[in-house]
Design a protein around this nucleic acid. Sequence first.
DNA 1: TTTAACGCGGAATGATCATTCCGCTTTCAA
DNA 2: TTGAAAGCGGAATGATCATTCCGCGTTAAA
Lengths: 200, 200
Amino acid sequence: MAEELIAGERRERRDVQRNMERVLQAAQELFAERGPDVKMEEIAQRAGVGVGTIYRRFPSKDQLFAAVREAVCQSTRHCLAQAADDTHDPLEQLRAIIMVQYRQSARQAALIDLRPNPADAPVNLDHPGLYASLHALLTRVIASGQRQGSVRDGDPLMLAAICLELLSPRTVQNLSRLVGDDVEAAADHVILFLSAGLAV
Amino acid sequence: MAEELIAGERRERRDVQRNMERVLQAAQELFAERGPDVKMEEIAQRAGVGVGTIYRRFPSKDQLFAAVREAVCQSTRHCLAQAADDTHDPLEQLRAIIMVQYRQSARQAALIDLRPNPADAPVNLDHPGLYASLHALLTRVIASGQRQGSVRDGDPLMLAAICLELLSPRTVQNLSRLVGDDVEAAADHVILFLSAGLAV
DNA sequence: TTTAACGCGGAATGATCATTCCGCTTTCAA
DNA sequence: TTGAAAGCGGAATGATCATTCCGCGTTAAA
């Protein structure tokens, strides 16, 4: 497993990767807690690093934010795909999706709005964002439920969009508060509600 | 109707009220379109006024924003109260409320999140904000529907909170896009959905 | 029409950050 | 152990606003 070093090349300094990880970790925590307006200074501080170090790897705050957001999206997408694979019953899939999204919400809060930015183009399922992924996934699940007769009629795109509105991190936070900040209990309420709203 | 002028008092200059109105109008439009981050300069410009003029009436940007938001809240609250008075059938009331909120959403977009700020105290129905008003109103309507048997069982506070998530300006905007930006059509979908989700 | 207030516009000010820069440290390889 | 390449911290810089200030224009009353 020894590293291949091309002639005249130097191994990467050990502190580089460590600092990189600390920065990403700190940025993820702070962005998730308080949104894109945290100061670079503060991120650097929590990472135990100077601001200059952040800029060595990320050309701008925007790009740091984008990187963090992308990492969180990736991870959520992965969990979602897995959840949807565990069963083929559409209503079960729906439940699994909701639960994943509710469990992930803490990592996403204030980092992902889960709604297309108003400036975005009209909803485009090829868009790489989490909203688009979830919307596409839910649309498929709902359409399949309709085919097998367990979900009522109606435009699957619209039904999926309505469901999605109940899955954004902010919504999760808000509903959870009503049941003593118990995210899973809130998810149960929403699952029940959506099952009824979608039933034949 | 002549104005009473106390000794040594001068009538208010005519341009004062006119400018005040222009400023409020411009601020409402811009805040609703693009949120609290619009520049004072830009508000002044759209109002056809210098920044100094804004500051003569509003000590700070925050207070201008608060004033505009309060005005919009008042107006919406008024429409809601009226809509809820037009009938005593809970499901009809629910429909009316949804329609009002959807119609008002353009004036609110980006100005009101319709969700308690995370920093807020736990949901408090005495809070003067629009979220609290709507939540209280919906809770009452749902509870009354349950009493007369047209709404299924479940904690009215939670059911109301779930409905509310489908009524925020951002949600309205988002769902409307799916039906060609037709706000009323989107409202119909949501009404149908909620009726099903709440039915016995 | 005149005049003293009163408001007005918008340049100047100050605060708050993102971003850059550079002398000092750490790390690697010999 | 040592030299130099690569990173590092954090002060300095510059941009972007909110807010203040003041000489000038308008207005209400006489």
